[in-house]
Amino acid sequence: MKNKKVKGTVLALGALMTGLAVSQMDAQAAHWNVDDDTIAHDPTLIRENGTWYTFYTGEGLQLTASGNGMDWNLQEPVFDEPLDWWDNYAPDQSYNDVWAPDISRFNGKYWLYYSVSSFGQNNSAIGLVSSDSIQNGDWTDEGVVVHSSEGDNFNAIDPNMTVDENGDPWLAYGSYWSGLKITRLNENTMKPQGQVHSIAQREVNDRSIENPMITYRDGSYYLFASIDYCCQGADSTYKIVVGRSDSITGPYVDRTGIPMMQGGGTIIDTGNERWAGPGGQFVYQNRILARHAYDTEDNGAPKLLISDLQWDSEGWPYY
């Protein structure tokens, strides 16, 4: 309901470091030494007044904070109970289980998009809350943004707000079904206006693509996505892929020229012996990539991984 306040006050963090520049953070290591006990799934990352914050999938929309990007402290969740309107779009949602958030700052406010859904179905909705300060945690419910239901050819989850070269906001979203979508946002309401564009999909017999993340760099738009299967612990097969385009609405093609609308996507992370199924990626300022992976040394628990994002001489990302 518009203007309804939702819980999310951040607890005092004691001796958190402040004023540390991103460039200094980058210098620590190519892969940040995140504490091995830092649980996260589908993380989104942002920095406010010297403190890093990650929001991620979980009951009430989970939130952690860190002064150094390595040691993370669990905070109060954004929602202490489900909002009344969620049940209209995701009637089989698991109580207060909120998915795949996306945090950004635009026009002087923080905008936190998130998903509510019935697992394995496209009875889903993307919601939005806003705040002047993450630390104060005074979130205002802005209601539903996009929704889908049985019979639709898309799934309204995994939102990502991005800004084009002109400073105009867009929302990418989607999972399985007919793939990933993008639409222009009204800069005042931060809700869709105009046409919905399809930007990536897999083959009909394997529709496993989700979690779009779009960033703009040096005249090109880059679409990161997660393919294959999450949520199976150490048996997860998630991978992170990327394509690029001259236009925010595509067509996006991979490094070999295969369009992402035809199943293309250059793989940049498949995991390793310790970390299975990396995905749920988020790019911060074209310099940092956060994602989750399943810890094979801890019963497949989803953990937060953060790396410096690099760009090669041909303009393709790696880490």
Rank of each mutant, 00 (worst) to 15 (best):
N3H: 00
K4L: 15
V6R: 04
T9N: 11
A12K: 00
A12D: 13
G14E: 12
G14Q: 05
G14V: 14
V22Y: 00
S23H: 02
M25T: 11
A27R: 01
Q28A: 09
A29H: 05
N33G: 02
D35Y: 02
D36N: 15
A40P: 14
H41T: 11
H41N: 14
L45N: 02
T54K: 01
T57S: 12
E59S: 04
A65P: 15
M70T: 15
D71H: 05
D71Y: 10
W72M: 09
W72E: 02
N73M: 15
Q75H: 09
E76C: 05
E76F: 04
F79W: 05
P82F: 00
L83N: 02
W85A: 05
V98Y: 03
V98D: 04
I103C: 08
F106S: 10
N107A: 12
Y110C: 13
L112Q: 12
Y113L: 15
Q121K: 08
S124L: 08
A125I: 14
V129P: 09
S131V: 12
D132W: 01
S133C: 15
Q135W: 10
N136F: 04
G137I: 09
G137M: 05
T140K: 09
G143E: 11
S148H: 04
S149Q: 08
S149V: 11
S149W: 03
I157M: 08
I157T: 08
I157K: 06
D158E: 06
M161P: 14
N166V: 14
N166D: 14
G167T: 06
L171S: 11
A172W: 00
W177M: 14
W177T: 14
G179E: 07
G179M: 06
G179T: 02
L180H: 04
K181N: 09
I182C: 04
L185I: 10
E187G: 08
T189S: 03
G194S: 10
Q195V: 15
V196M: 07
I199E: 01
A200Q: 12
V204G: 07
D206M: 12
R207A: 00
N211S: 15
T215Y: 02
R217H: 12
D218Y: 01
A225T: 10
C230A: 13
G233A: 07
Y238H: 05
Y238N: 05
S247T: 04
I248S: 00
I248D: 03
G250F: 09
G257K: 00
T266K: 05
I268Y: 00
T270E: 12
P278V: 11
P278I: 03
G279E: 07
F282D: 13
F282S: 07
I288L: 10
A290E: 00
L304M: 13
D312K: 00
W316H: 01
Y318Q: 01
